[in-house]
């Protein structure tokens, strides 16, 4: 397995080269000149030319490409063009509020979804299952924005149970600020998660080995938890782990409405201000996270199913 892990880690090199190339083409060749946005409404042609020079946009293209590659491998992203802040520091500072919101909500949503899915599968075809299915469809049919607007108005403003917006660093100071968006996050996740988990569990439930287990006289609960869930874990792990990069990169809409200074807002601001170094950093970061987490998924497979061997 160690060899496999090392090999997969080495795959990072060509992938990062590829990502760097795509980012370079997108930002240096396809997109426009960022200097007008960076200099504001009174920019002059001369000042734009000076800034292009200063930002290194007049350097030979190959050199500019190597700059992107260098930052991808060293994780030294330099400073933001728009805010002049150190990008690594911005990412660390923004990741904390994002994770305070998304991580507990994600863990809770996943566990709750699994429990609901197992209950629905246990009572498949009956009233409870129908109710869960209807609720899931209703849940995914309503836009996230509607949930946010209603919950913020009703629970934070009308009932006054939560803070309307804001964030404070440190536990438990951040709890009143992230509690409501976290609840919304859980509700938004339940619909798609339960639908997926339920389908995967039901796929397993009709397999021969389940019939064998039942024939051996095992109770339905044991069949579900010990046999069905274990076999359903592989698609579930894939589904769950692949969502982790988006947790770190923030829940943009929730962060915006609840004024949580996370990475979602940083990325959006960067897009609106042509802040290429920040956008590049976020793109590289998400690629690396994606690769590392898909490796983690593979490793987790071996625990979930001993028949899986990583070679």
């Amino acid at each position: 397995m160690i060899k496999y892990v090392i090999r997969r880690l080495l795959y990072l090199i060509p992938v990062l080269l590829g990502v760097s190339f795509i980012i370079f083409v997108l930002f240096n060749l396809v997109s426009g000149d960022p200097t007008a946005v960076l200099l504001g409404k009174n920019a002059t042609a001369r000042q734009m030319a000076e800034l292009r020079e200063q930002l290194g946009l007049n350097k030979p293209l190959l050199e500019q490409y190597f700059d992107v590659v260098r930052s991808a491998f060293t994780f030294n992203f330099g400073t933001s063009w728009a805010t002049k802040q150190d990008i690594s520091q911005m990412i660390v500072q923004g990741a904390y509020p994002s994770l305070c919101l998304t991580l507990p909500a994600f863990v809770f949503a996943t566990i709750l979804s699994l429990v609901i899915s197992l209950v629905a599968a246990f009572y498949r075809g009956k009233g409870i299952d129908l109710f869960v299915r209807i609720m899931c469809i209703a849940g995914v049919s309503v836009s996230a924005l509607a949930y946010i607007l209603f919950f913020q108005y009703f629970f934070a403003y009308k009932l006054g149970w939560f803070e309307i917006s804001g964030f404070e660093y440190g536990f438990p100071d951040f709890v009143p600020y992230v509690a409501l968006p976290a609840i919304i996050f859980v509700l938004l996740s339940l619909g798609p998660d339960v639908r997926f988990f339920r389908t995967v569990i039901l796929d397993e439930i009709y397999q021969d080995y389940v019939r064998t287990a039942r024939a051996k006289g095992l109770t339905e609960i044991v069949v579900l938890l010990k046999h069905v869930l274990r076999n359903a874990l592989i698609p579930i792990i894939t589904y769950v782990v692949i969502q982790i990069p988006s947790l770190i990169l923030g829940a943009l809409l929730l962060e915006n409405f609840f004024s949580i200074p996370g990475l979602g807002g940083i990325t959006l601001n960067a897009l609106n201000s042509s802040d290429f170094p920040v956008i590049k950093a976020m793109a590289i970061l998400s690629s690396v996270l994606y690769i590392l987490l898909s490796l983690l998924t593979d490793v987790l497979y071996t625990f979930a199913d001993p028949r899986v061997k990583l070679k």
């Binding site: 913020q152 006054g160 309307i164 915006n256």
Partner: peptide, 18 residues
């Protein structure tokens, strides 16, 4: 100074005397 970008939280915070 509270940084609030969206209209609704701005409005609700003012209406809550915050």
């Amino acid at each position: 100074v509270h940084i609030i970008v969206e209209s609704q939280p701005k409005w609700l915070s003012f209406m809550k005397a915050k």
